[in-house]
Design a binder for these strands. Structure first.
Lengths: 115, 115
DNA sequence: ATCGTCTATCGGCGATAAACGATGACCACC
DNA sequence: GGTGGTCATCGTTTATCGCCGATAGACGAT
């Protein structure tokens, strides 16, 4: 356990005495908190699996931008990546997505149960 | 009124052909995608209702920072604000929070149902 | 070997977020 | 009136986001 004051670990800045759970949830929500990424998730799941180009054609965003969004989703664990020849197959990780939904539900629930 | 191609309306930048729903969901998730704000939500619901100072004491953040976070939560409609003498009562809007949870669940569901 | 295509990454730019201190408004109380 | 506590806002600084064009790597086809 490093004694670093800030362990960014891909999360947003957090107060010192912050529940690690909150950081994890926040990081995943951050990945989902962009309209383009939500749309990309929808598109991926509708098509079962897409390559980058397919997504670029769908939305009018530059290829580099789409690649960036996909990278963020992969790093958040919401999308799985599999290189396929010169293409890249991206597919939604439904389990991870369900997990996010469960996390939010748990947060809401804890707020209601605690009164 | 300028003919701006982007009507930001308090949301993150979005591609042109973006489902408005995605923008709304994204905006709410953005409010939740910060560890400190998640912690604040938890604290508020545990205490039923808090003033700003109470939150400041709990986390080691400057009063102005906490005030800012609370403002963001209020603007996102997740927390209700009620001035009370020189204090400010902040309370979680459980209905709104449940609504966010439902939105995420709907998104996840649409991904699974669409296969 | 040389194209053309698909990707990922780099570098840069403008805009926004996040944090803080300082200031002033407001209220209660002495 | 003066004092102390609470709060929102302003202004500043720093870091990150979101987007793009350009570039380079990898692959298939000609």
């Amino acid at each position: 356990m490093t004694e670093s004051p800030f362990e960014t670990d891909g999360c947003r800045p957090a107060p010192r005495n912050c529940d690690p759970d909150s950081r994890v949830v926040a990081a995943r929500l951050a990945a989902l908190s962009h309209p383009a990424r939500i749309e990309i998730i929808k598109h991926l799941s509708a098509s079962n699996s897409c390559c980058c180009r397919e997504v670029v054609d769908r939305f009018d965003l530059a290829q580099s931008t789409v690649s960036q969004h996909l990278k963020i989703l992969v790093e958040a664990g919401l999308v799985r990546f599999e290189p396929d020849r010169q293409r890249s197959r991206y597919a939604v990780d439904h389990a991870a997505l369900a997990d996010v939904s469960a996390s939010v539900a748990a947060l809401v629930n804890s707020c209601c149960s605690g009164r």
